[in-house]
Design a protein around this nucleic acid. Sequence first.
DNA 1: GTTAGCACTCTATGTTTGTGAGTGCTAACT
DNA 2: AGTTAGCACTCACAAACATAGAGTGCTAAC
Lengths: 339, 339
Amino acid sequence: MTLGERKIRILMAIIDDYIKNAEPVGSSTIVKKYDMGVSPATIRNEMADLEGLGLLMQPHTSAGRIPSEKAYRLYVNELMKQKQVGNAPIADIGGVLRTKLDDPDELIREIARIVSKNTHYAAIVTKSQIRKSTIRYIQLINIDENSVLLVLVINKDIVKNHIFKANASIAQEELDIISKILNKNFTNHSIQEINIELIKKVGAELGEYKNILAPILEVIAGTIKAIDKPDCSVSGMNNILDFPEFSNLDKARDMMKFLDESEGIFKILNQYPNDSGKIRVRIGSESGFSQIDQCSIVSGSYNINDSMYGTIAVIGPIRMDYLNAVALLENLIRQVNRL
Amino acid sequence: MTLGERKIRILMAIIDDYIKNAEPVGSSTIVKKYDMGVSPATIRNEMADLEGLGLLMQPHTSAGRIPSEKAYRLYVNELMKQKQVGNAPIADIGGVLRTKLDDPDELIREIARIVSKNTHYAAIVTKSQIRKSTIRYIQLINIDENSVLLVLVINKDIVKNHIFKANASIAQEELDIISKILNKNFTNHSIQEINIELIKKVGAELGEYKNILAPILEVIAGTIKAIDKPDCSVSGMNNILDFPEFSNLDKARDMMKFLDESEGIFKILNQYPNDSGKIRVRIGSESGFSQIDQCSIVSGSYNINDSMYGTIAVIGPIRMDYLNAVALLENLIRQVNRL
DNA sequence: GTTAGCACTCTATGTTTGTGAGTGCTAACT
DNA sequence: AGTTAGCACTCACAAACATAGAGTGCTAAC
């Protein structure tokens, strides 16, 4: 399908105007605001053609035209490239993010916050672990008569810890010995690799300290499971309410509920698992979920250090400012990947 | 003001019915549903009296009555006690919460989630530190050529950690020595107490390892500041949209925005700082903020271990089920305080 | 190929009218 | 004195209708 140059100009004008004003665009509006140098009648003829091609729609006979999903698709795939992004889409946020690197949950929350704030749409950030997390370092620390602090370094840079009660008071020197044994046996193992055999072996090495093994293993298992659990953070849902397309409360509510139960979102965002860098755009019904068929999703994958990956997504009305959203995500993901 | 028994019964009926159905209650509805044993006309006379007392209101002449804020106040202060809470307001959640004890942020998020899920209103949980946090234990751990893991135990049970790069590789034995010096000087000190004098002294003791002090202090300061920062978690804002009183989108949006910018909420919730156990109810305009004058807030303070305290609050429409909300919060706060 | 002119369509808005819910008052009843 | 049947009254809400205006498609002329 190859369109004449004027048809493209008209289509762009309609898309731009509709993105901005959320109202059907009429032929004379185009002439006036986007000086086409022809009369409204001519524009009307062209618009009729564009409608025939499935690029424009009329909400009703006496209204202007609005772009169809197909038009947005064309816009995103081809037309958008001609335009310039306005101002720098996002500041340098490497510093802020680096401070959260040791807590993936907090990290994705912060990213979501940044995205929603900068786009004024809703933002969703998911995270998963790329490989099964492995234990990197274990250290036991005596902090109280019989409270023991277990510090766990997982993968490269995630540190978690937990305090548990030991049955008896254990001196730091003893704990150091225990730590050493644990490290020798567990380091670079994932939780799956800690089998009964290994546990038996460690138990034997521990000798009189054998009892402490059970609570420790429990903590390790719980911690790693929590880290490996895919998670997802949503931010800026309010912004959604600002758009006239959601003045229908029922639609808005459905959608919010959908975003809250992250199940569906996960399915959508994980469709294209691992094409880091490339930004995906899902327009309206392309997502396949009726609850959000009035929304578009712009998303991209990030990948930190080969240990954690996920998707950063912007979700807004179909008449979203794709140009900026894409630019912002590209920039942001580049920064995140560099972490 | 002492009301006759029948007036009270009528008032209760109106409040109950309105809480349930969100629609003005007429005289015949009361007779039918709450068999009063008298005719609608009699009820009408009584209702006129109640309106005279400022306890009932009419949205318009030909509508039934709705309770005024004053009526809810009476209900909460006096009448409610006669009624029985339906089913057990909340299960035992001590176990779930205990797993989050080492991360206050995560803890309040979980509590908020529990509250909103159980009440179907929105929930807000704030946290502050009761005293300035003090350092309880410091441990440096070598995990990589020149990556050092700093483990900080703060107060009783908060553990934080941070990985930083040292200029040179330092062996674990050396780090142990440094840790010991740090502990000797910083343990049981708050960040305010770490002044230049003390730093100089520690620097001297550290001798050749002096250089490592700066990054460590930075991490300590940052961590404690983050912990001491009052924070707040909101959950279940969607629920708000389910109530007919917020079918006006503008109102709903204003309110959501208000909840999102937690400033105002903080002011409200911190009005009664530290009366642990007692549940407060703010009805409608009593909160003093027009954005949420169609809402009521039920809140109570918790206090964990004398180190962290805050407020757990439920926010819903004025015709909230106060009885259940109060019972649930009482129960929950009891469980939280026991942590 | 372009455009002025015009009839046509359909929404949005305002007006009118009818209906029903619920009231307050009065007069009769217990 | 308290209760109640009866009734006129008020007012929101909904349906029915009228009107204005925006925008179209078509035709015929340029």
